[in-house]
């Protein structure tokens, strides 16, 4: 271990002289189609493609890092990576702690996925992932909220009858409903939160301006729309 540490230190030292700064992109890796781990164990999805393109346009050297959803903001704030790119909706609460770039998706309504089309959303049992905007939304309605640690478990809860429906981003629920005949997306939708943006430390104004410009250029030449269409994220710009 000692040897390992020494070489690490030596490498870190020599690297600081040779290489330019890399920008580290933090993501969750468990929320398709936004971001997920593909078969070969790498980060993939809409945001992977988007992030790589943004880095190219902004002339940044980028590196992908995965982090648990629970601690994704504390780790950004304490400097373990520089950008959050994890399907994070822009909310006032979050905006107080970190900065967001302009949104790169339109506000996406959240949908309900249920075992049958006639469940009672108003008074039924609704599942949501702990710590999401959907969870706090359900808590404020008359429905009974039941929280799970991962999005996977929320859907399992509907399958086995623990919950009547699950509330989550429509882009996430869509592919699930397509493949499972037992589950249907309800008509009812809830508009919670704004669009999705990149999360950046408040003290990192320069990086925010660079990435903002890159997103704008992608919006202008239509390449962002093409990506949104490819990954079926929702409404185009």
């Amino acid at each position: 271990m000692n040897k390992l540490l020494l070489t690490t230190a030596a490498l870190a030292l020599s690297a600081s002289f040779a290489m330019a700064e890399t920008t580290r992109l933090g993501t969750e890796g468990a929320y398709p189609p936004y971001n997920f781990i593909n078969d070969s164990g790498e980060v993939d999805g809409f945001e992977r493609e988007l992030g790589d393109e943004l880095c190219k346009r902004a002339k940044l050297t980028c590196e992908w890092v995965t982090n648990d959803w629970d601690s994704i903001i504390p780790n950004l704030v304490s400097g373990n990576y520089d950008v959050i790119i994890a399907g994070m909706s822009i909310t006032d609460e979050r905006d107080e702690v970190i900065d967001f770039t302009q949104n790169y998706t339109q506000p996406d309504p959240s949908g309900y996925l249920a075992a049958s089309a006639d469940v009672d959303i108003k008074n039924g049992v609704i599942a949501a992932q702990t710590g999401t905007i959907q969870a706090s939304f359900v808590a404020s309605t008359g429905a009974t909220l039941v929280e799970f640690a991962t999005p996977e478990e929320t859907i399992a809860a509907v399958r086995n009858g623990e919950a009547d429906a699950v509330l989550a981003d429509k882009a996430y629920l869509g592919p699930v409903a397509d493949e499972d005949d037992g589950l249907v997306l309800l008509e009812q939708e809830e508009l919670i939160g704004g669009g999705v943006g990149l999360g950046i430390r408040e003290s990192d104004g320069e990086l925010k301006a660079t990435l903002d410009a890159a997103i704008q250029s992608m919006k202008d030449d239509g390449s962002l729309n093409a990506m949104i269409e490819k990954w079926e994220i929702g409404v185009k710009f």
């Binding site: 504390p74 704030v77 979050r94 970190i98 710590g131 808590a139 009974t144 039941v146 929280e147 623990e162």
Partner: peptide, 23 residues
């Protein structure tokens, strides 16, 4: 799972850490 936000001490600590972003 936690029903109707009735959880143990760690659940609420987690809630606050999540809301204030300060662990």
């Amino acid at each position: 799972p936690a029903w109707q936000q009735k959880g143990d001490a760690l659940y609420y600590a987690n809630y606050f850490a999540d809301k204030t972003f300060n662990p």
